[in-house]
Amino acid sequence: MKAAPEAQRRLLDLQSVDTTLAQLAHKRKSLPELAEIDAVAREISALEDERVRAQVVVDDLDRDIARLEKDIDQVRQRKEKDKKRLDAGGSLREQEGLQHELTTLNRRQSELEDSELELMEQRETAEATLAEVQGRLTAAAERRADAERRRDEQWAEIAKELEFKTQARAPLAADLPEDLVALYEKIRTDTGLGAALFHAGRCGGCRIELYGADLHRVKAAAKDEVVRCEECRRIMVRTAESGL
C-alpha cells in the first residue's frame, strides 16, 4: 500500500487519540470506586442477612412475651373469680378448695412473671444487637452512597474527555486516505494498536529491534510505502525521528 509520508505521520496523531480513548474507557471500567462499591454491596448483603436473623430473634421473643402476658392475664382473671367466690362464703370444704387453688394460682403467676422478666431481659439484649446491626447497615449504606457519588463525578469527567477526544478524532480520520484508515482500523481492532513510530531500529508496537535484512527492508522502502512490522503486523511510521 502507498500513502504520502505526511499522511502516515498523521496516522500517529490518530493513534494517539485512539490510545487516549482506550485509556479513558479502561479507566471508566477500573475506577477504584467500582471495587469499593462492590465490596460494600457484599458487606450490606451480609449485614442484611444478619439484621434479618436479629429481627427474627426479637420477633420470636415478642411472641413468647405476648403469650406469657396472655397466660398471666388468664391467671389473674381466675384469681379474681376465686376471690369473689371466697368472699361470697360457702362450705368449709369449698373454702379450703378455693384457698388451695388461689395458692396454686399465685405460684403459677409468680413463675410466669419470672419467665416473662427473663424473656424481657433477653429481648433487651436482642434489641441492642438488632440496633447495632442496623447501625452498621446505615454506615455501610452511607459509604456506598459516598463511593457512588465519587464514581459518578469521575464518570462525568471521563465522559467529557471522551466526547472531546471523539470530536477531535473525526476530522483527523476524515483527512486521511480511506484505504490507509481501513488498514489501520483493522490492525487496531485485532491488536489494540494500529500504527507506531519506527525509532532507532525498533518497532514502536512490539518493541522488537530489527537487524540485517529486516532493517534493510525498512530503510530501502520508498517514503510513500506503508511498512508493516513482520512480527506484530502493525504499521511502522517512519519520520525524521526514525534515524534512517
Rank of each mutant, 00 (worst) to 15 (best):
L105K: 07
A168E: 14
D13A: 09
E225H: 15
G194I: 02
E111I: 13
L183K: 11
R238E: 00
Y184P: 01
T20K: 12
E230D: 14
R78T: 08
Q122K: 15
Q74V: 00
E241W: 10
D175I: 01
G89E: 06
I187L: 15
A35L: 09
E132W: 04
E80Q: 12
Y211P: 01
T239P: 06
T20P: 03
A196V: 09
A221W: 06
Q109E: 15
F164G: 01
R93H: 00
L215V: 00
L11W: 05
A66K: 12
R9C: 03
D82L: 15
M236K: 11
R234I: 01
H199Y: 12
V75H: 09
T166S: 15
E153F: 09
D179P: 00
V52K: 09
D49A: 11
L98W: 10
A140S: 15
E48L: 04
A240Q: 06
E127M: 13
A222I: 01
T189Y: 10
V181G: 08
R238N: 02
T191V: 03
F164M: 07
V237E: 00
I65D: 06
R234L: 12
R51H: 05
H199N: 06
L180M: 13
R188G: 03
M120E: 10
L61A: 04
Q167R: 10
K2T: 07
R169T: 02
L68I: 07
T239D: 00
L61G: 04
S30I: 05
E50T: 15
A126C: 08
A174C: 02
A128V: 10
L11C: 10
R144G: 01
L31M: 13
R108H: 02
R217V: 04
H100R: 14
D73A: 14
T129Y: 09
R51D: 05
Q74M: 08
R143T: 04
A168N: 01
E96S: 08
K84I: 02
A141L: 03
E116V: 02
F198S: 07
Q134N: 11
P5G: 06
V133P: 00
E225M: 10
Q77P: 01
D49L: 12
G205L: 05
R150Q: 13
L119D: 05
R93L: 13
E6P: 00
K79C: 01
Q109M: 08
L86E: 02
E157A: 15
G212A: 07
Q167V: 08
Q122I: 01
T125V: 13
P5C: 08
A3F: 11
A7W: 03
I72W: 09
A222P: 03
L92N: 04
D62S: 14
L193T: 12
K2F: 05
